[in-house]
């Protein structure tokens, strides 16, 4: 073969072979370079594809880079934005088991946030109380401002208003800028207003309607409905009484109205409990909306 190929041909073939090999291998490795993956993740984030972006960044994490703390924080934040709170929790927990973490408080905060978003308020509060104690003396991190805010949010969700106010006081102390202080003051108002939102118990509503038909509905704020329920049941009850009083226990009118009154009475108890449950759910929704809006404005979570 070497006898056949002249120097020019050999050189051309070498160049072409290099040319053939370079595009595939270099472009492939280039596409998978750290910078390209980071860029692709940012591109996906810009499109609102948070979960895909987090999955791409997990690739980098698996390569064992040096800045894994900040990468995990970004992954966790993306998972939270994608409503994949369990994955955010997993990412934070896995990173927290690593030695020599440079951003431990931020990772603990991420974990608490993920727990809060899963409505695991007790666990989140527990994590946050440890974190608040650890970062109280720190001046450099925003966590010492954000952690008590999130703790207050957890407690407000559980309607522990006094505990929530105590945490807000800690956030007020940690607030650096005038803007942060104003945000905390605004949140105090939100907490106070939220505490005043109606909280109705289905059990009490049912019990009240059992004692006095319609009373449970009045308790849940449906006054007209309650009065009409009372009049219906009382009217049918009276008609049944009238029938039995006139014709004795064989009165057809008595049995018909008695059955209707009984059915409506039981239905009213159930309806009152249901109404209280709806009022309670709506109040909870309102509470969450107010609190989350307020806390988002305050820069946390």
């Amino acid at each position: 073969m070497s006898a056949i190929l002249r120097p020019f041909s050999a050189a051309l073939i070498a160049v072409l072979m290099a040319c053939a090999a370079v595009p595939a291998s270099s472009q492939q490795s280039d596409a998978m370079s750290d910078d390209r993956i980071l860029g692709f993740a940012s591109y996906l984030e810009g499109l609102g594809e948070y979960r895909r972006a987090a999955t791409e960044l997990e690739r980098l994490l698996a390569r064992g880079l040096s800045n894994t703390d900040s990468l995990t924080l970004r992954i966790g934040s993306l998972y939270i934005r994608a409503d994949a709170h369990g994955l955010a929790e997993r990412a934070a927990r896995e990173q927290l088991t690593q030695p020599g973490l440079s951003l431990r408080p931020q990772l603990q905060y991420l974990l608490s946030h993920a727990l809060y978003r899963q409505q695991r308020f007790d666990e989140a509060s527990e994590q946050l109380s440890v974190l608040i104690a650890e970062v109280r003396s720190s001046d450099t991190s925003t966590v010492n401002y954000k952690a008590p805010l999130l703790a207050a949010l957890c407690k407000a969700e559980q309607r522990r208003w006094d505990d929530a106010r105590a945490d807000l006081s800690l956030a007020e102390i940690a607030a650096r800028s005038g803007e942060q202080k104003a945000a905390v003051a605004g949140l105090k108002v939100v907490i106070d207003e939220s505490a005043a939102l109606p909280q109705k118990s289905p059990f009490i509503a049912g019990l009240l309607s059992g004692i006095l038909p319609g009373a449970g509905k009045v308790y849940t704020g449906h006054t007209l409905d309650g009065v009409l329920s009372f009049l219906t049941i009382a009217g049918f009850g009276y008609a049944a009484y009238d029938g039995f009083a006139s014709d004795g226990s064989s009165s057809v009118r008595g049995w018909i109205f008695g059955s209707l009154a009984g059915g409506l009475y039981l239905g009213n108890i159930y309806g009152s409990a249901l109404s209280a449950s709806i009022v309670r759910d709506e109040a909870t929704r309102q509470l969450q909306l107010r609190l989350r809006t307020g806390f988002a404005i305050a820069g946390a979570p």
Partner: peptide
């Protein structure tokens, strides 16, 4: 002739690799 036989497939391979990537 031999040069042509060797160069053309390589050129094709080169182009197809680029297209693949």
């Amino acid at each position: 002739m031999i040069r042509f036989v060797l160069v053309v497939p390589l050129l094709l391979a080169c182009l197809s690799q680029a297209a693949w990537s």
